[in-house]
Amino acid sequence: MSEPTSPAPEAPTRAPRPVARRLAVAAVLAIVVAGIDQLSKAIALAELSTTERIPLLGDLLGLQLAFNAGTVMSLGSGSTWVFTIVSSAAAVAIPIAIVRMRSRLARAGLAIVWGGAVGNLIDRLFAPPGFGVGRVTDMLAYGDLFIGNLADVALGVGAVLLVVGLIRRRDA
């Protein structure tokens, strides 16, 4: 009679490598940011007007549809293709920087910047007038200064978090 055999021991499961985990978390955050940005732009295209402003905070902040071929305040509007190239390069370079960073706050900030850059890159690639020269959809009117979008907000917030994270890490 043969003795019952015990089941084979299970192979130990390995925890995800820190680099893979960092990149995965950052990618999810960037995708959420870009997704919210694109959803807000779709709603703006469906609901807002280029001629009428909806006040949110009096004259300080409102909603108004605009299309921007340049950057903030329409700077460089004749060089949309340059911004497309720079945004494309950033979309590739940012993940490389993220996996090398030690500060969680700095990684989160850079992931938010990544999402904002991708949000505006999607417009530059696929919005009219054509591939690579599309106009970015804007809807957040800051008084009479300029009209931006949630990707722009993400770029600003992410940059602040990145700087704070880097400063805190250096001081630690």
Results as ranks from 00 to 15, higher is better:
residue 1 M to R: 08
residue 1 M to D: 04
residue 3 E to A: 13
residue 3 E to G: 08
residue 4 P to E: 13
residue 5 T to I: 04
residue 5 T to F: 00
residue 6 S to F: 13
residue 7 P to V: 01
residue 7 P to E: 03
residue 8 A to H: 01
residue 9 P to V: 12
residue 10 E to S: 14
residue 11 A to R: 14
residue 11 A to K: 11
residue 11 A to H: 07
residue 13 T to N: 01
residue 14 R to Y: 08
residue 15 A to R: 07
residue 16 P to R: 15
residue 18 P to F: 06
residue 21 R to V: 02
residue 21 R to N: 01
residue 24 A to M: 06
residue 25 V to G: 04
residue 29 L to Q: 00
residue 31 I to A: 15
residue 31 I to Q: 00
residue 32 V to K: 12
residue 32 V to W: 08
residue 33 V to L: 04
residue 36 I to C: 15
residue 39 L to Q: 08
residue 41 K to T: 01
residue 41 K to Q: 05
residue 44 A to K: 04
residue 45 L to C: 06
residue 48 L to T: 08
residue 49 S to R: 14
residue 50 T to I: 05
residue 51 T to V: 09
residue 52 E to C: 00
residue 55 P to R: 12
residue 56 L to E: 02
residue 57 L to G: 06
residue 57 L to W: 15
residue 58 G to V: 03
residue 61 L to H: 09
residue 71 T to K: 01
residue 71 T to L: 14
residue 71 T to P: 00
residue 72 V to C: 01
residue 73 M to H: 03
residue 74 S to W: 02
residue 74 S to A: 10
residue 74 S to T: 03
residue 76 G to R: 00
residue 77 S to P: 05
residue 78 G to F: 10
residue 80 T to K: 02
residue 80 T to P: 03
residue 82 V to T: 07
residue 83 F to Y: 12
residue 83 F to H: 05
residue 84 T to Q: 08
residue 86 V to N: 06
residue 87 S to I: 04
residue 88 S to L: 12
residue 88 S to P: 10
residue 90 A to P: 11
residue 90 A to Q: 08
residue 92 V to F: 07
residue 93 A to R: 07
residue 93 A to P: 11
residue 94 I to T: 05
residue 94 I to M: 11
residue 95 P to N: 11
residue 99 V to K: 05
residue 100 R to S: 09
residue 100 R to W: 02
residue 101 M to F: 10
residue 102 R to E: 15
residue 103 S to K: 07
residue 103 S to L: 12
residue 104 R to P: 11
residue 105 L to W: 01
residue 107 R to G: 09
residue 108 A to Q: 06
residue 109 G to L: 07
residue 110 L to D: 08
residue 110 L to C: 06
residue 111 A to E: 02
residue 112 I to F: 04
residue 113 V to G: 06
residue 113 V to R: 03
residue 117 A to W: 10
residue 119 G to Q: 04
residue 122 I to H: 07
residue 124 R to E: 10
residue 124 R to T: 04
residue 126 F to V: 09
residue 126 F to H: 06
residue 130 G to Q: 12
residue 130 G to M: 09
residue 131 F to A: 10
residue 131 F to R: 06
residue 132 G to H: 10
residue 132 G to Y: 01
residue 133 V to S: 06
residue 135 R to S: 09
residue 135 R to M: 02
residue 136 V to L: 06
residue 136 V to G: 11
residue 138 D to R: 09
residue 138 D to N: 07
residue 138 D to C: 13
residue 139 M to H: 14
residue 144 D to A: 08
residue 145 L to M: 08
residue 145 L to Y: 13
residue 149 N to D: 14
residue 150 L to Y: 00
residue 151 A to N: 04
residue 151 A to V: 04
residue 153 V to M: 09
residue 155 L to M: 13
residue 155 L to E: 03
residue 158 G to V: 02
residue 160 V to F: 14
residue 162 L to P: 02
residue 162 L to T: 11
residue 163 V to M: 12
residue 163 V to N: 03
residue 163 V to G: 04
residue 164 V to R: 03
residue 164 V to I: 15
residue 165 G to V: 13
residue 167 I to H: 01
residue 168 R to H: 03
residue 168 R to A: 10
residue 169 R to Y: 14
residue 169 R to D: 14
residue 172 A to S: 14
